[in-house]
Design a binder for these strands. Structure first.
Lengths: 218, 218
DNA sequence: TAGATTGTTAATCGATTAACAATC
DNA sequence: TAGATTGTTAATCGATTAACAATC
């Protein structure tokens, strides 16, 4: 199957979340306009997205939830399990350790790392925190493929390079320092300050109505 | 000035971060291609973005850092100070309280809220945590305009509605529950699970080379 | 059947890039 | 001056939406 664009992958993942919630509900099928309404998208967009993963619906009943979930799992590689390392066990890192496991079935947080010796060898939500020196060893041992960086901006780039060198294939970067990594490495950056800047701006300026994600009247 | 698109506002905010770092450096001016290189953008895009905020450069020297910063501050309303409330004082909320203040000069975290009574009346990084009952009162008293939601998905929608009712104008939502709020309210959603799903996908599938944000060879 | 929905193509919309005359 | 860069328009690219024949 050909590579799907980042935007579509993001929506497919949200469809998956929605359908997982509905899986044991009363309905066995959903229409594109129902999925669209729940996610504030257009029905055309939902049908187009589902077309890209080859799912078929019936004009009379819509899309079968179970079957659609299987197709989504396949398209998103939810079947492959990723070992995840959390680098930086401050409040942010510990929040991710505590919250993530539950929502994503194909991700296993296997280890954490922190430069602060007092955090090392402690266990947070069932995940052991190692000293930063052990990064290469533990990443290799545990077969880690994804890393979440929650460290101060100043150390982010160097740690990211060490992670990649140790075999990590994808990095989720929470530090405000934009990373430069080989293009073969998957990279997502979440700059919270940036989100807040947007928020502050659109608090004052009227934003063009985004039919997606926004509700009409309440 | 007319409303700027969300993408452009995001980049303007990143220019601002970059220039703030450079402000006391050796250079007084930067060329568009230098700014572009630092942020992995094209020089055309930088010039176009700066055009939208009316900044002018000189063909011989580029853009003056000080002047550009002033223009950015004005365009992004960095001059207006926003009172911010953190709703949910778990690890995620406390991480934001601890890290945010330093980076964004126009945001003041004034208060936190938590349903857990044992957290109430405690002070985290100089910010007092109030019981959830006090939300309406404290938000009004402190003149809060922005709220950061770091609560479980199940309570997110109801709390968001209470915040809006109490006078909040913008919400940054970290819960995985997508919110439905009046369209007059600015809203940004950060679904971390979604980012991880993208990461897992692009770890396996080659992503179309994103010249932005990605480095060539190392 | 009649009515609603799907799958898909074409049209539209918005964002990025290329190009280049004007400028320093 | 000669060379590089700016400001801006036009061209390109990608993503979303509208439209509608085929289907149930």
């Amino acid at each position: 199957m050909q590579t799907i664009s980042e935007k579509v992958v993001g929506r497919l993942s949200r469809y998956r979340t929605l359908l997982t919630e509905q899986k044991d509900g009363e309905r066995t099928h959903l229409f594109s306009h129902e999925i669209a309404a729940a996610m504030r998208l257009s029905d055309s967009q939902v049908r187009r997205d589902l077309m890209t993963i080859g799912t078929r619906g019936l004009p009379s009943r819509g899309y079968e939830i179970q079957g659609l979930l299987l197709d989504l799992d396949q398209a998103l590689n939810q079947t492959r399990v990723h070992g995840v390392a959390v680098v930086g066990a401050g409040n942010m890192g510990r929040a991710l350790i505590a919250n993530l496991e539950s929502t994503r079935t194909n991700l296993r947080i296997k280890c954490a790392f922190d430069a602060d010796k007092s955090k090392c060898n402690r266990v947070y939500s069932g995940v052991k925190c190692h000293p930063m020196d052990a990064l290469e060893t533990v990443v290799a041992q545990e077969g880690i493929t994804l890393a979440i960086l929650c460290v101060p901006a100043a150390s982010a780039q160097a740690l990211a390079e060490r992670l990649v060198h140790a075999g990590v294939k994808g990095v989720l970067n929470f530090s405000s320092q934009a990373l430069r990594l080989p293009r073969t490495i998957a990279l997502e950056e979440i700059d919270i300050g940036n989100y807040l800047a947007k928020l502050a701006y659109f608090t004052i300026h009227p934003s063009k109505e985004r039919r997606n994600g926004r509700h009409e009247d309440r």
